[in-house]
């Protein structure tokens, strides 16, 4: 297994925090900024990304020995585009309100760097088990990041979490505490910067502690 790269378990665990696609690799930032206004949207987007990630990784892993180096990106894109279209149609058919709210961001998963990155880094080099575990781990890492962003933005911008009013209701006096910038692009950048900074700070703290323990 050693020569075939990290084990499936390692792949799975790395994707969640140590190699989190959004906060550690800074990939897929377009949906992270654009659709994290509410937790419901973030979870729908995460589920769609997870589905495409798993399917694209599995197909790429299956055909990895047939890939021509100069055509591999074309094959990745073709595979990803097919599964994104399926996810888009599924949402339009069975979750139409979410499909409408997410608008063009579902078709834009085609150009999400997380997926093409995992096809290139893991699935085109490793077997089915490692590729599937990698997809699930990275997918969960992406979900964690989007939900964290959406939680901050929805709580401050709309006073609710998962559409459940927690701080105030629409049209009541409490609405004056709404931090409406959080519903807008500047709020997304602000939240992203703060969370990214927090993750880096925690990581540095861990590294310092580990170094101190070694001494």
């Amino acid at each position: 297994m050693a020569k075939d790269g990290p084990t499936p378990l390692e792949r799975f665990l790395r994707g969640i925090i140590p190699e989190n696609p959004v906060f550690r690799q800074v990939l897929g930032t377009c949906p992270t900024l654009a659709i994290t206004g509410t937790v419901r949207q973030a979870i729908t987007m995460s589920a769609a990304v997870m589905f495409v990630l798993i399917c694209a990784n599995l197909i790429t892993s299956l055909i990895r020995n047939l890939l021509k180096p100069h055509l591999r990106i074309l094959v990745f894109t073709l595979t990803i585009a097919a599964f994104v279209t399926i996810a888009d149609k599924f949402l339009a058919a069975f979750v139409p309100d979410m499909s409408e709210k997410l608008g063009p961001y579902i078709p834009l998963i085609i150009v999400n760097c997380i997926i093409i990155c995992r096809c290139e880094v893991c699935a085109s080099k490793q077997g089915l088990a490692a590729s599937a575990a990698d997809a699930v781990g990275q997918g969960l890492g992406n979900t964690l990041a989007l939900v964290a962003m959406a939680t901050v933005r929805e709580l401050l911008g709309s006073g609710s979490w998962f559409d459940i009013p927690l701080f105030w209701k629409e049209g009541t006096a409490g609405e004056q505490f709404r931090w409406s910038i959080m519903n807008q692009p500047p709020g997304a950048f602000l939240t992203f910067g703060l969370l990214l900074g927090a993750v880096v700070w925690i990581d540095q703290l861990h590294q310092k502690r580990a170094a101190a323990a070694k001494r």
Binding site: L71, T79, K89, A92, A93
Partner: peptide, 27 residues
């Protein structure tokens, strides 16, 4: 060089046609 790309295109095209036939009316 391109047989794999062609084969995948055909397979995905057929799958998407199926999806359209099945879910198109629901949409």
């Amino acid at each position: 060089q391109a047989w794999l790309v062609l084969l995948l295109s055909l397979a995905f095209g057929a799958a998407l046609a199926g999806v359209q036939v099945g879910w198109g009316p629901i949409i």
